[in-house]
Simulated assay, not measured.
Amino acid sequence: MEFQNTPKVELHLHIEGAMPSEFARRLADEKNISLEGVFDESGGYAYRDFWHFLEVYEAATQVLTGPEEFARLTKAVLEQSAEQGVIYTEAFISPDFCGGGDVGAWKEYLAAITQAASEAERDHGIKSRGIATPIRHFGPEKAKAAALCAAETVGDFITGLGIGGDEKAGKLADFAWSFDCAREAGLQLTAHAGEWGGPESVRDALTLNVERIGHGVRAIEDPALVKELVARQVTLEVCPGSNVFLGVYPRLEDHPITRLMDAGVNCTVSTDDPPFFHTTMTKEYQDLARVFRFDEQVFSELNRAAAKAAFCDEDTRADILKQLS
């Protein structure tokens, strides 16, 4: 099956990580910025492993020097998603990359991003929301600044707080202040865990009372933890292609998504950083159909689960569900 025209909901997409390599090269040329070592011979992003990926990721963001560049990026990413049948997406956006954690600068970046998102909805029919995202390996103090940025701009577009970066840098409990701040401001919460940190990192994330977990797949190694995820109705933002490309699992056949679903865990499907991992939402669906025999009914259930877990208002959720029916 082709799946490109299947309506899709994506909950785990990094706005900077979704930057097409040709977009990054074009901006680098415009601004005379050297991106030596960022690309391979074919023009794609080049890195050795997850930790080198983080370095290359941050190096590529050098071309995003101001609100205008983020507006251009937002339009490019959302147009690309719409071409893959995505009708609603949530993008992780880091205040660290948008003004260095300064609230005033963040508001300028956010105004440009929000305008671009509005234009993408008008032109391509794709709805979107933003999840402000501290970078874990930047440390708890910088995370506090990012959380304050999020708390100051909670509204129609910024609806959540997450945390990304190196799962092995400290404990998520170290970031409790930031998550408490966001919760009190009315933001919904997610956290990257259970990718490289193992099931213990998922337990760590649950101490923050998050509603969703980015990845979370290593929870399968702890049956009691799987039962806890089911009992607490925590939704996993599963990114199968990313997990295989980075070597969390050697093959898609080894990925635990079906075992998690069979155990009753709420799962969704996303691309994470699509150009870095040579994937699209359509490719994710095609690969899951090929390996696990997922059909339109299974994808419909996954998308409805994603819509119900989305960090959006109820009118938007009802509209998404109507498009999925």
Score class of each variant (00 low, 15 high):
Gln115Met: 04
Pro275Lys: 12
Val248His: 06
Ala60Gln: 10
Ile135Lys: 04
Tyr45Glu: 05
Pro20Gln: 13
Phe292Met: 12
Ser300Gly: 15
Thr268Asn: 03
Asp180Ala: 14
Arg317His: 03
Ala263Tyr: 04
Ile163Lys: 02
Glu79Val: 11
Phe277Ala: 03
Ser34Lys: 11
Arg26Asp: 13
Gln233Arg: 15
Pro67Ile: 08
Lys227Ile: 02
Arg232Glu: 11
Gly162Ser: 14
His137Leu: 06
Ile15Met: 14
Ala146Thr: 13
Gly17Arg: 09
Thr207Pro: 01
Leu27Phe: 05
Cys239Asp: 11
Phe92Thr: 11
Asn243Glu: 09
Gly247Cys: 07
Ala28Tyr: 07
Ala185Glu: 07
Arg317Ser: 10
Glu22Phe: 12
Lys171Asp: 12
Gly264Pro: 03
Leu288Gln: 07
His215Gly: 02
Thr153Gly: 10
Val226Leu: 11
Asp295Lys: 12
Arg136Val: 08
Glu211Cys: 05
Leu189Ala: 05
Ala116Leu: 11
Pro20Asp: 05
Ile163Ala: 06
Ala143Phe: 09
Leu225Val: 06
Asp287Pro: 00
Glu83Leu: 13
Cys239Phe: 03
Val56Ile: 15
Ser178Leu: 09
Val103Asp: 00
Gly186Met: 09
Val230Arg: 05
Ala145Pro: 00
Ile126Ser: 10
Ala151Asp: 04
Glu41Val: 03
Glu221Cys: 02
Gly139Tyr: 02
Ala112Glu: 04
Arg25Cys: 05
Ala60Thr: 14
Ala318Ser: 12
Pro274Met: 13
Phe97Ile: 09
Gly139Glu: 03
Ala71Lys: 01
Ala224Arg: 13
Leu302Phe: 10
Trp177Leu: 11
Phe277Cys: 11
Trp106Ala: 12
Gly197Gln: 07
Gly247Ser: 05
Asp204Cys: 04
Ala185Asp: 10
Ala306Gln: 07
Gly17His: 10
Tyr249Ala: 06
Thr65Pro: 00
Glu314His: 10
Trp106Tyr: 15
Gly101Gln: 04
Ser325Trp: 01
Glu237Leu: 11
Thr271Cys: 11
Met261Cys: 04
Val244Gly: 01
Gln297Arg: 10
Ala76His: 06
Ile220Met: 11
Pro250Thr: 08
His215Pro: 05
Thr258Met: 15
Phe175Val: 01
Ala132Met: 06
Tyr88Ala: 09
Ser118Ile: 08
Val217Gln: 04
Val9Lys: 03
Ala191Ser: 14
Val103Gln: 09
Lys75Glu: 15
Phe276Val: 09
Arg290Leu: 05
Ser94Leu: 03
Gly44Glu: 13
Pro256Val: 12
Ala173Leu: 13
Leu27Thr: 02
Glu200Pro: 00
Glu68Ser: 10
Ser81Met: 14
Leu302Ile: 15
Pro199Thr: 09
Lys322Asp: 06
Ala231His: 10
Leu302Ser: 01
Val238Thr: 12
Leu324Ser: 07
Pro223Met: 12
Leu64Pro: 07
Ala111Lys: 07
Glu167Pro: 04
Asp180Met: 08
Arg259Phe: 06
Asn32His: 08
Thr159Asp: 03
Ala59Asp: 12
Gly198Ala: 04
Asn303Thr: 07
His192Ile: 09
Val56Glu: 00
Gly264Ser: 11
Ala71Asn: 01
Ala146Cys: 15
Phe39Gly: 05
Glu167Asn: 04
Pro140Trp: 00
